[in-house]
Amino acid sequence: MSDDRLTTSDEELLVRLGSLLAEVDSVPESVRAAAVASYSWRSPDSELAQLVESMSGAAEVRGDEARLLTFRADSITIEVEVIPVRDRLRIVGQLVPPQPARVQVEQPGSDSTVGTDADGLGRFMLDDTAPGPARLVCTLADSGPICTEWTTL
């Protein structure tokens, strides 16, 4: 039977290989910096809306297929359609139950945060979003911010 534990010499060999690969196969500085910077998006006080459904090809808009994403928190469901418009994205959303709210899209890649107001029926639209990791932050009239899970759009 093989022993699951590593011998000391095996471990030494792997450590040696590890330092070698660290040089040969190093992480680009921009990738490492992005990982470090991710920490600044920590928001322990906001409620998390989990991605519960992701569907593609549900609608055909100008030849591009849209994605339908559904995020759910305790108090609210956020449904969004992500529509490619050339190399950018349009986000059309609906809050359920319908209600007015401030909706912002946060992206680590961009310095500015784009926001809009959902109307009385809970509808909102965000134009010109860049593809990549993003999350929506909804601020309702009577509660703290609700963040969707980070999702690569």
Binding site: V31, G132, P133
Partner: peptide, 13 residues
């Protein structure tokens, strides 16, 4: 780069 970033953001979360 996007996969790496998304992975670290999910860990923050």
């Amino acid at each position: 780069a996007d996969v790496s970033q998304a992975t670290w953001l999910r860990l923050v979360e």
